[in-house]
């Protein structure tokens, strides 16, 4: 207790000697775990950087307006991915239009309306399982149900079939994201709404959804960007790789054959000529730009809605 007030500040001696703070040891542990998490981050980033570098160094030279605006070709130098890019955008729109209302609707029902009983618990578990089913299984389902049985409506392995298959694939993700976002809205808000004489739907529409919509949108767009990158289900339903036309912007366009970016890339990679591998790398860059755009949109939308609410 006889410390000099002008020296380095040190707390006066403690009254109790029952504690052994061992501060040095605890700080060491702190630093050790900080280092571990840093390593984890670094490894992830490093792998990603290497992938990016590899793809860009291979494909950047091939990127040109000609590459984006040409149809596929036997000759690597003349080949482009116009039909694949347009096909992917088509698919994306169909998938979004089908999956968003169904997924969000199902999420709202399960979270806000459905009673908590054995039946809904079974549904809940199964939706969780569906999210983990390999995408090729969805492809097989799409092939049989959408492409074959529903051929008169879908026109076989068409944009519509592809969109429906991908919509099925991402529905569980959207439902889960919707439920999580709704669950994050505090219950006191619901009670407040009911207490002023609102009906269930008025509470959901005016109080709950405005709070939940940024999360729902983020989940949906992330699910859609997963759909854009899917290859296996599209190949399974029989999407073509050589499409030298653009589907017309009409209802008939929904029933035409299509190709998509991942299919085109997969096709090019499996060719023997190295020039096609360069094309594939360039295609991957285009696909990544599409994904990046979508994720940016997700972030912007979320920020916009978060600012919009007070």
């Amino acid at each position: 207790m006889s410390s000099n007030p002008y020296s380095a500040p040190q707390l006066p001696d403690a009254h109790s000697s029952d504690f052994q703070p061992a501060l040095n040891k605890r700080y060491k542990l702190d630093r050790f775990f900080e280092f571990l998490t840093w390593i984890a981050t670094f490894v992830g980033l490093l792998v990603l950087m290497m992938l990016l570098y590899d793809v860009i160094s291979d494909g950047a030279s091939r990127l040109s307006w000609q590459f984006i605006s040409s149809f596929p070709s036997r000759r690597p130098a003349a080949a482009g991915l116009l039909s694949a890019l347009v096909g992917s955008i088509w698919l994306l729109c169909v998938t979004a239009i089908l999956s968003f209302p169904i997924g969000v609707g199902a999420g709202i029902f399960l979270e806000e309306f459905a009673p908590d009983n054995f039946f809904t618990q079974i549904i809940e578990i199964n939706i969780g399982n569906l999210a983990a089913v390999p995408s090729i299984i969805y492809g097989l389902l799409g092939l049989q149900v959408f492409s074959r049985i529903m051929r008169p409506i879908t026109g076989g392995p068409s944009v519509l079939t592809g969109g429906m298959t991908l919509a099925l694939l991402i529905l569980p993700i959207i439902i889960v994201a919707t439920r999580e976002s709704l669950r994050a809205v505090p219950n006191s808000l619901r009670q407040g709404g009911f207490a002023v004489g609102a009906t269930r739907w008025q509470v959901i529409r005016n109080l709950i959804l405005p709070q939940a919509i940024p999360g729902i949108l983020t989940g949906t767009i992330l699910a859609l960007s997963r759909a854009v990158g899917e290859t296996a289900p599209l190949i399974t339903i029989g999407a073509l790789t050589f499409i030298a036309f653009l589907p017309p912007l009409s209802l008939e366009g929904l029933q035409t054959d299509f190709t998509a970016l991942p299919i085109q890339i997969y096709n090019w990679v499996s060719r023997p000529q190295p020039e096609f591998h360069t094309n594939a790398a360039a295609g991957i860059i285009v696909l990544m730009v599409v994904l990046l755009t979508m994720n940016t949109t997700a972030v912007l939308l979320r920020n916009k809605f978060q600012k919009g609410r007070i």
Partner: peptide, 14 residues
């Protein structure tokens, strides 16, 4: 609507 309520924790609408 006819019988209003005020809660323990203030819960204004956002």
């Amino acid at each position: 609507r006819r019988i209003g309520m005020v809660f323990q924790k203030p819960n204004p609408f956002p």
